[in-house]
Structures are given as C-alpha cells and as structure tokens.
Design a protein around this nucleic acid. Sequence first.
DNA 1: CCCGTTATGTGGTAACTTTCACAAAAGTAG
DNA 2: CTACTTTTGTGAAAGTTACCACATAACGGG
Lengths: 210, 210
Amino acid sequence: MRRFKIPEVTVGRLSLYLRCLNELEEEGIEVVSSAELGRRCGVNPAQIRKDLAYFGEFGTRGVGYYVKELMQDIKRVMGLNRTWEVALVGVGNLGTALLRYKGFQRHGFKLSVAFDIHTEGKEVPEGCVLYPASEMERVVKEKGIKMAIVAVHYSQAQEVAERLARAGVKGILNFAPMRIRPPKKVVVKNVDMGTELEILAFYLTMRGAK
Amino acid sequence: MRRFKIPEVTVGRLSLYLRCLNELEEEGIEVVSSAELGRRCGVNPAQIRKDLAYFGEFGTRGVGYYVKELMQDIKRVMGLNRTWEVALVGVGNLGTALLRYKGFQRHGFKLSVAFDIHTEGKEVPEGCVLYPASEMERVVKEKGIKMAIVAVHYSQAQEVAERLARAGVKGILNFAPMRIRPPKKVVVKNVDMGTELEILAFYLTMRGAK
DNA sequence: CCCGTTATGTGGTAACTTTCACAAAAGTAG
DNA sequence: CTACTTTTGTGAAAGTTACCACATAACGGG
Ligand SMILES: NC(=O)c1ccc[n+]([C@@H]2O[C@H](COP(=O)([O-])OP(=O)(O)OC[C@H]3O[C@@H](n4cnc5c(N)ncnc54)[C@H](O)[C@@H]3O)[C@@H](O)[C@H]2O)c1
Ligand SMILES: NC(=O)c1ccc[n+]([C@@H]2O[C@H](COP(=O)([O-])OP(=O)(O)OC[C@H]3O[C@@H](n4cnc5c(N)ncnc54)[C@H](O)[C@@H]3O)[C@@H](O)[C@H]2O)c1
C-alpha cells in the first residue's frame, strides 16, 4: 500500500484489467480469480496480484476478486471515478476523428473544447466548443482544464505544450511525431504511430518477411 | 553483433534516433557524438551506443557517427530502406484520418488498399483502392501485402486479425481498444489511446491535480 | 467446529534494462 | 613517430520488472 513509484507498465495493465473486468461484468460473472483474469488478458497471475498490491488488498483468499468491487477500486486508484474535461488542440484529420470518437466519453473523458488556428468551416460535435488558438490560455484557465490532447503539426507541438502548461494543464497526450519535452510539473505521453509501424517493420524484417 | 533477442524499447529508440538524425541532417550537421545525440533526444549516451552495438559498429572512435551513414545503417537494420505496402481495415473516423495522413508515406509506408464492410459513399485518397471487406483475403494475398492496420470496432478486431493472418499478413497495428491475441507467426502492436488517457489521469490524480 | 480446498498476498530470485567507467581505437599536432 | 585528445564499444555494476513458490486466510461440507 505504498503509493510511491508506480511503474507505468503497471498503470497500463490496470487499464487493461479494467477492460477485461468490463467484459466479465457484461457476461454476468461476479467473481474472478487472478488465474482466470490472467488467462483472459494475457498477463501472469502473479503479475496481476503484484500490480494490485501496490494499492491495497482487493481480493479474498480462496475466492478471488469481486468483479464490480475490483472495477470500482481500480477506477478509484486511477482517478477514473469522475469526468475529466479535455482540451483538443489541432482540429485537422486526426483531431476531427478524435472529436467524433465516442469511446473517450464512455471512459469519462469529455473533449469539451477544441482549438485551431483556422476555425472557419470547421465543425465540431455537439457538446464541444471550437475556439481560435489565440483563446487557448484564457479558455483553458477559465474552465480549469487539466488535460489536453495535442494533434498539431510537429513543428508546433512543443510550443503548444508550453502554452497549455502556462494555462494550467498538467497532462498532455501528444500525437505529433516528436517527443515533447515535458514542461515543469506536466506529464506528457507521446503516441507515435510512425514509430509503431517502424517497430513492426523491424520485426517483420528480422523474421524474414517478404 | 548478435541478432538474437532485441528488446522492443531498443527498436523504439532506433526510430527516435532516426527522427533526430533527420533533423541534424536538415541542419547540415555531418557528424554527431552519442553525447550530442543523447542530449537532443533525451537518452543516455551509453544507452545509444549499447542500442547500436546490437547491430554492429557504426561509429568512429574519437569522432562520433557520420549522420547520413548512421541513418542508412539504422534504416537498413530496421527494414526501412524500402516501401512497405500496408492494408487498412475499417474506413471510419480513424481510418479516414490515417488514410489522409501524409506522414506514413514519407516514412516508406504506403496505404495502398483499404477495406470496409460498407463501401458506398466512402472516399479514399489517390493511390489507394477501397474494397468491400469480403475481398480482403483475395486482394491481400494477390498483392502479397505483409502489414496491416486494424481500425474497426473492437468486437471485430480479433476476427479481422485472423483473416488477415490467413491472407499472409505478418504484422498488424491495432487501434481497437482490445488486445488482439497474435495469430501464429504474426506480430501485433496494440495502440490504445484510451489507456494512454487513463495513464495520464492516474499520474494527475497521484500528483493531486484538481 | 474442524478439515480440505482454493486462491490471495508476498519474500526471494531470476531475468532483463540501464548506467557507469575504462580500455582501445582513431585522429591531430608537433 | 610519439604524445595527447576525443569518443567509441563493452564488461561489470546498479537498478528495475517479472515470476515462482509458499505461508496465510477464507470458504464450505461434513
Ligand atoms: N492524421 C493522422 O492519421 C495522423 C497519424 C499519426 C500522426 N499524426 C500527427 O498528428 C498531427 C495532426 O495530424 P493531422 O493529419 O490531423 O494534420 P492536419 O494538418 O490535418 O491538422 C493539423 C491541424 O492543426 C492546426 N494547427 C496548426 N498549428 C496550430 C497551432 N499552433 N495551434 C492550434 N492549431 C494548430 C491546423 O490548422 C490543422 O487544422 C500531426 O503532427 C501528425 O503528424 C496524424
Ligand atoms: N476515432 C478515433 O479517434 C478513435 C480513437 C481511439 C480508438 N479508436 C478505435 O478505432 C476503431 C475505429 O474507430 P472509428 O471511430 O473509426 O469507428 P467507426 O465506427 O467510425 O469506423 C469503423 C469502420 O469499420 C468498419 N467495419 C466494421 N466492421 C468491419 C469488418 N469486419 N471489416 C471491415 N470493416 C469493418 C465500419 O463499417 C466502419 O466504417 C474502433 O475500435 C475505435 O475504438 C478510434
């Protein structure tokens, strides 16, 4: 139950467990063992127990974990028992797809504001407001938004990140193909789809494909 | 120079080095030390040297690495000195954004065919051909395509992956929010944006944001 | 209420990754 | 050709993460 340095892989797996627990719940299963959960999500059972042990004792010996309870517990420790307002910067190809995606909403992330340097002719879904990029600091600060997604051209990503940080954002998910150097007190996660394809290319080459 | 088990983090960093070397080349810099490269991409210099040492000796002692040469070497070991034809399955919000994205092309990945169960009214860019999903096995096999991107609803992802595998695909990049269990002899990379946001939420909660 | 069964929580260890630190090689200047 | 500087390539240490194996706890049947 020591809340100090939790490895990111562990946090990622918690998210995975949550997905799996969701399915179990939908199937009407009320109790699950680490063995069964491990089989379903491809993780060693001991790993699951160790991951959970960072945060407390959630299971019952001889029984397993109560699905609904464990879901609540994981959501609580991950900060998912609430709605997070998220700002999107860059309403281009990718930004528009993200805005239209219903999945974030379902998991408690609400893309409530979007920013772009060009707003003319751009549409955003119900429930989201589009602003010119110049309004970013003001709107983000006023709304107290703490989380943002960056989907601008890579040459703009670092600057946008720093502006967001100044406006009070504490977490950034970056899709531009360059690692944003995290501003002070900000957590940055970079998702680089190009790199993912390149990793695939590597393993295919290694295994002698084509 | 032992080509056995290369850790995936190493491969990811190779891709990062490549990005960085590109910038150096654009700046007209011809030689770079591991120290300078490390500063630029936020990686320990010894780490860089170790990563490269898996594949050979690319540097010159007392000098450093010749930028152009190292780029070629990394591209060669990663299998990026060629064009990869890629099939896209699922031409929805995300699929369309991916098709329109110019960045893949620039790095040698060509999304030359796309598949969807609904093709009516769907547009794909020049250079890409859209087929009904029922044609998947035939087209992929005929074209000898080895790499695919899956952007369908999560309930379809596993089945699509298995069909792709049967058609000869050896590498799959999956965007559906469920881990695809890799079919025999297929490498699967899962990109889960929901999980990424949840990891951010965790660290923000941990640090007491909001 | 006790005993057998089951599955958790965890100490210890194995496996893996990162970093240190230095010998070896290459270049340069005298 | 030698002395000196620079920076690689790498063995060994340190640090991290995953897994095994078992004592411990809960449950249920007799
Ligand atoms: N489209 C994809 O599928 C895809 C895939 C992988 C990575 N990416 C990356 O995501 C980013 C966006 O890609 P895209 O295809 O949507 O590009 P895009 O050009 O369609 O969209 C970028 C948007 O950002 C806006 N913008 C630019 N600078 C801005 C600023 N300073 N402030 C606010 N808005 C700004 C532009 O007006 C534009 O609308 C790029 O970095 C790209 O490399 C995209
Ligand atoms: N849109 C996003 O920004 C986003 C973000 C994160 C994750 N995702 C994930 O990516 C996937 C696609 O998202 P989307 O928003 O594009 O959804 P979407 O519903 O807009 O698109 C899915 C497309 O796949 C097609 N399809 C369904 N089953 C198919 C099959 N068996 N074979 C071929 N085509 C099939 C559908 O006709 C549709 O066009 C989903 O799994 C989603 O969870 C999307």
